[in-house]
């Protein structure tokens, strides 16, 4: 049965549970409690909810101020605004000051596909990975999202978590093994390794099945921890294959593909193909329609993998 529970709902459930015993757990939002599925938190713990209104820059800096007084702040706002309008506030007040703030970028990537480029966040991985002391996570399903938030509740460093608007397909189960900053090798291949994050993990798993039907051995690595990139697991998996393909709901520049290419090319050079959104104005539509348009659905990924393997190395 198709999962209907969104990753943002999973975040809310974990935070409600945490707030029961930890009054320093604070949710901050920018008129975004509804769109972040945090209304239940707001109703249950109104004294632990800080509403900043439609003022994302203030949201981030005020969160850093709260954190400096011992609060564990989860600041939730659409990823498009957090990662661009509030970028300096994230750079200075959260990352540079190493504030105990977790930024929750809701409706990331092309979740708001039909709302246009203003509401896309296809540069957030690049932007936040470039900030010293900032960690960047794109969990792939609701179970991993919950484990990730539980882990972040126990530390005191800055982090950015991007989740999609729609429910992600289930990949794991309630009792999944989870280690923070450790990528998850879902299956090992001999021909090609698909390295994906966020929504692209489920698409890559389906692509691996399609490839297997054609006799191509494809592995899938869930690199939900884009920064710090789990280089050890990546290289171990990459060494086994001929070609590495990265898959992400992000600009082709500066995201997971760039990070993986840097690591793999330095340590175990392979052909690397980056599947991502093009550097241009994207077509309007649902996220699934946009994925299909740009070859980021299972069929498109499988097709690209097949072509890459067919290409001769110079």
């Amino acid at each position: 049965m198709e999962n209907k529970i969104t990753n943002r709902q999973a975040i809310c459930d974990v935070l409600i549970k945490a707030a029961e015993t930890h009054r320093d757990v604070i949710v901050a939002c920018s008129d975004s409690r509804g769109s972040a599925s945090l209304s239940a938190f707001a109703e249950k713990y109104p004294e632990q909810l800080v509403e900043m209104g439609i003022a994302e820059q203030n949201l981030v800096t005020v969160s850093a101020g709260l954190a400096s007084c011992g609060k564990k702040v989860f600041a939730a706002s659409p990823a498009c605004f957090l990662s661009t309008r509030s970028y300096e506030q994230v750079k200075v007040d959260v990352a540079y000051s190493r504030a105990n703030v977790t930024l929750i970028g809701i409706s990331g990537g092309v979740s708001y596909g039909a709302l246009g480029m203003t509401h896309h966040s296809c540069q957030d991985i690049a932007a936040f990975c470039a900030l010293p002391d900032m960690r960047v996570y794109l969990p792939s399903d609701r179970f991993q999202t919950a484990r990730l938030i539980e882990a972040l509740l126990t530390d005191d460093s800055p982090a950015y978590v991007r989740v999609s608007r729609t429910a992600s397909k289930d990949i794991y189960g309630e009792n999944m093994d989870f280690t923070l900053n450790q990528a998850k090798l879902l299956c090992q291949g001999k021909d090609v390794l698909l390295v994906a994050c966020g929504e692209m993990v489920a698409e890559s798993l389906e692509a691996a099945s399609l490839l297997r039907e054609k006799g191509i051995s494809a592995g899938v690595l869930d690199m939900y921890c884009v920064k710090p990139l789990d280089e050890k697991t990546l290289l171990q998996a990459a060494e086994q294959v001929k070609t590495v393909i990265t898959v992400e709901e992000h600009s082709v520049y500066g995201g997971l593909g760039s990070m993986v290419a840097q690591t793999v090319s330095a340590a175990c050079p392979k052909r690397i193909v980056n599947l991502a959104l093009p550097d241009g104005h994207l077509t309007a539509g649902t996220n699934r329609e946009i994925f299909k348009t740009y070859g980021l659905d299972a069929a498109g990924i499988a097709c690209s993998a097949e072509s890459a393997l067919a290409q001769k190395t110079r």
Partner: peptide, 25 residues
Amino acid sequence: IEMNSGSLGHGLALGVGTALAAKMD
């Protein structure tokens, strides 16, 4: 020094954060 700062237009919002925390606590 409480926080790394200096880019203009940040201090007042940091102060809102610490003042809110005082009220909460």
